[in-house]
Design a protein around this nucleic acid. Sequence first.
RNA 1: GGACCCGUAGCUCAGCUGGAUAGAGCACUUGGCUUCGAACCAAGGGGUCGGGGGUUCGAGUCCCUCCGGGUCUACCA
Length: 593
Amino acid sequence: MASACGGSMHVSFQIATDLTQAVTAAAAQAGLDAAGFSPEIRTADPRHGDFQANGVLGYAKARKLNPRAVAESLVAALPVDVKARCDISIAGPGFINFRLKPEVLLQWLTRYGTVDALRSGASSLHHGQRYVVDFSSPNTAKQLHVGHVRGMVIGEAICRMLAFCGATVIRDNHIGDWGTQFGKLIWGYKHLRNDAALTADPLEELERVYKAADAATKNDPAVLDAVRAELVKLQAGDTENLDLWKRINAVSSGAFTEIYQKLDIHFDHQLGESFYNDRLGVVYEELSRLGLAEESEGALVVFHPEHPRFKTQPFIIRKSDGAANYASTDLATMLYRAEHFQADAIVILTDARQSDHFEQLWLTTQKWFARTQRRLPRFEHVSFGSILGEDGKAIKTRSGDPIRLKALLAEAEERALALVNEKSPELPEAERREIAAAVGIGAVRYADLSQNRSSDYVFAWDKILSLEGNTAPYLLYAMARIHSIFRKHGIDVATAGQGQGATAPETETELALARKLVGFASALELTTQQLRPHFLCTYLYELAGAYSAFYNADKVLVEDPAIRARRLLLCSRTLLVLESGLSLLGLRTLQRM
RNA sequence: GGACCCGUAGCUCAGCUGGAUAGAGCACUUGGCUUCGAACCAAGGGGUCGGGGGUUCGAGUCCCUCCGGGUCUACCA
């Protein structure tokens, strides 16, 4: 750790990385078999240290050596600067514990004192990587409902975090704009629309038209034929239908944009399924020619003989009537993202029910690219569970319809406003409304992010808007309390953040808080590596907890200038990390609430 | 039938490539505001980690098996 615990001029952002290097070098120095040794540096239980190296246990076991003896020789071989900057101990069966000395904590806090400094430090984590992230991806002409929110919120957070950590992120909203629903929509638009309703709430009316048309096809075979004819006309390039298709998409897009703006969600591209319409031929042709795809029951399909399931369950890449489906367009999309965007990694967010599809897509893509000598990007299907009602079943309105996202967000703000009115009636109304928006929307968002995405979660207003526990309001409140200290005493956050005259942390709660702040690097690494935002949420919650304990135990504005300066530094830095972290999650933060 | 996900405190959930005495919040008990925002903090009780085998220095984590819940399983996405 020549850099982190080395000279006083430089402290690494991610100290664990430097420790890994230092321990690896020490292992070679101590005569260990370098190829068979991995330091296994982890963040440690605070009772033991800041980091721990577990690598000697496995190493010693495999070679029937005494692990403590190995650990001792390894520690002896560590560079002097590491020993100078960390308290090192060997414990139990051979754990090596590292505890950063308070001066090192102070150095880290001093160095990473602005968002730019944090970003610059974090950029080493994914530097130079090009990610295409596909999220939201709703179907045209349907309302966004609760089922869509999780993918939107998690997707936005993942994009922000990857970009913060140095990646080039290309955000693509892969809209479902070319499906079979357009036959019904166009027919319905021509025969059933209500122009007044269409003006008042276009998407609502389109959805009504769609449902009515759908019902009509079930009652009247003639309508079904007419609907199919509309679809055929559209796909054949009929001017009138193409024009209608464009108008329907425009209406839909406008409604989506409204919600995207409310949630502060952004895209670089909106390449829907229709975009790939004239890029499907190469998929059919190549997969057939390579022998990957075969005809089965009239459809063009891909089997994967090595797979227990997909050896018999086909990946249907062209329907028996010759039409494309989403396997067709997704394959074309993989190719486009690899070639046009030069993606190093493709990340697609959908709910977990589509796991089979993406597993088949990926199996197929790997073989296809291998046989055509194409460079293969990494692929991540970031799947997530459903949002359940308090009865444990899929969340629905009383009438059984999905809950509109628009209505959900409005209710969130309403409920938050009631809380703010109760807690802070002295604030001006305009500010109370702003706070309510940040708290309400933030609470919904945070609920989606804070739980491990692979499980379903139960949506309960009382829980997500609670001021206690791992919630948005708690974190926002922690920030408001810190701001209050500075505001009340006329101290500038940035000035205090320079830490002029600050001494190294001393009290137990100061030390715990400082260590937690340094842990931001590990939290970011873990979160972006696994693409699971709840790790960052857990970290921020623990940080806020460490701050509260510190705040409760150590008065900030004491007489002693050195103590005062270091405590103000800790406050300023906590604010910075909470602000940065919550922004990465997509939450708006507040100065008062 | 098969595949995947899940099962951790009364409830809602964490637990990072296997690591040290399994952790939070809610609820419950107790203590702390004339003192920087108590929407807070501190302390306490509460566990066969679904059951049973196995792998090893070490298993909530990996393997097998069984039980329970969810999802998917040929032309919707």
